[in-house]
């Protein structure tokens, strides 16, 4: 605990926490997507409901759920705290702006994209997680998904939020490895390749779901 607090007290240590929890959330994205892909199986949602039921009732998943929630909270709180600390470091802004000459837009808008993804997370939990976990009679997750994705506004919100998640990961994924100190000339190409899977392929597969169900409601 002392080691953690000693780390957390420094700006570099806080970055480690953000990077570690960020990659942990990335692993959750893979698990979540794997189950979601069963939505595309042509069996009326049987397999998808089976896995959704397993995830919401299995005793081994419960502690993982709490660890995941802790990971999300640490990532969100520490990032917001760092953002606030970083804002304190410059009271007088520059008159002439030329940040596009030396850095990417994705790297400069992490707080904005992260905040929108956070709003999406709250809405997403309210739409899917709460009814599944806290209802007296567990509803069919497949039917819930079909119902939610009939609403064009929800579909649009979902597509925009996931696109911004991809944009967040475009900088965030490789940045985590730089924070761990393992992004050097040798490993950088591999990190960028795997990063491409996370910021491009995975968001596209997530987006495919609402688009598919919106255009194929029955």
């Amino acid at each position: 605990m002392d080691t953690f607090l000693s780390l957390y007290n420094s700006s570099v240590g806080k970055k480690f926490v953000v990077a570690l929890t960020g990659l942990f959330i990335c692993s959750f994205l893979v698990v979540h997507l794997t189950i979601n892909l069963f939505l595309f199986k042509n069996d009326g949602g049987q397999t998808y409901d089976l896995y959704a039921h397993f995830m919401s009732t299995n005793i081994f998943i419960r502690p993982i759920e709490y660890i995941l929630a802790l990971g999300f909270l640490l990532h969100i709180f520490t990032s917001a705290y760092l953002w606030w600390l970083n804002k304190q470091a410059r009271s007088v802004p520059y008159k002439a702006k030329a940040s596009s000459e030396n850095s990417t837009l994705a790297s400069r808008t992490m707080f904005v994209t992260g905040s929108i993804v956070f709003i999406f997370l709250v809405v997403h939990i309210r739409t899917f997680f709460v009814p599944t976990r806290f209802a007296d009679v567990e509803p069919s997750s497949y039917e819930m998904v079909k119902f939610a994705f009939r609403d064009p506004l929800y579909v649009l919100f979902y597509v925009i939020a996931i696109s911004l998640l991809g944009y967040h990961l475009r900088h965030g994924f490789q940045s985590a490895f730089q924070t761990f100190g393992i992004k050097d000339k040798k490993y950088a190409p591999y990190i960028h390749f795997i990063g491409g899977i996370f910021w491009l392929l995975i968001p596209l597969l997530y987006i495919a779901m609402p688009v598919y169900f919106y255009f194929n409601p029955y």
Binding site: S11, S103, S107
Partner: peptide, 16 residues
């Protein structure tokens, strides 16, 4: 940190 410098967010503006 004590001097009040901010943290690194790997934008790479410094290198540029």
């Amino acid at each position: 940190d004590k001097e009040g410098f901010g943290g690194c967010t790997n934008t790479l503006a410094c290198e540029a």
